[in-house]
């Protein structure tokens, strides 16, 4: 079958792949590039487990074609931590036990990061509405919302009062 050649950037790495015209970005990430951190919960844009950021915009990768990645900058869960340095949201999700089964967690983290980049002081309601496109069936959202609010609070602290321990390596 005819395949389309695509050049893109994923988590800062130049990436080339070929895909069929009807393949979604999620299929490409998972099945062609082996990046299975983005999950497919529905394939219809209802659950948010496949959330990625494309040129700064939060999207469901199941609703975007792989071919549309041409020339774009894609960020996925695999690129969220800086080496062994976790993103503060990742550390807070651990601290607050904001995950149970963990299958929705990559999508929540990508979506929450996107929120905090736009709004560093969201209200509980703003967090809840921003994350309304991400389904979690285990937690009832309580601990997730707390983790996001707590991260925002910490990240707003001026840099000099920030303890170096805030970005420590995870011990788990």
């Amino acid at each position: 079958m005819f395949q389309i050649q695509v050049s893109t950037s994923i988590n800062g790495d130049d990436t080339e792949f070929s895909c069929e015209a009807d393949e979604t970005l999620l299929d490409v990430l998972r099945d062609r590039l082996g990046m299975t951190g983005s999950k497919e919960g529905c394939g219809t844009g209802d659950c948010g487990a496949c959330s990625v950021v494309v040129d700064g915009r939060l999207v469901c990768s199941c609703l975007m074609l792989g071919a549309e990645a041409q020339g774009r900058e894609i960020e996925t869960i695999e690129g969220m931590a800086d080496g062994t340095e976790l993103h503060p949201l990742q550390q807070k999700f651990l601290d607050h036990a904001a995950l149970q089964c963990g299958v929705c967690t990559p999508g929540f983290l990508v979506a929450a990061k996107s929120l905090l980049e736009r709004n560093d002081d969201p209200t509980e309601e703003e967090v809840r509405y921003w994350l309304a496109g991400n389904l979690c069936r285990c937690t009832g959202y309580d601990k997730i919302v707390r983790a996001v609010l707590d991260t925002a609070k910490d990240m707003r602290k001026p840099a000099k009062t920030k303890k170096p321990a805030a970005k420590k390596r995870v011990k788990a």
């Binding site: 951190g37 996925t76 969220m80 931590a81 976790l86 651990l94 995950l99 967690t105």
Partner: peptide
């Protein structure tokens, strides 16, 4: 299993 689940 925390680290694996927050990093994908």
């Amino acid at each position: 299993d925390g680290l694996d689940k927050i990093t994908g």
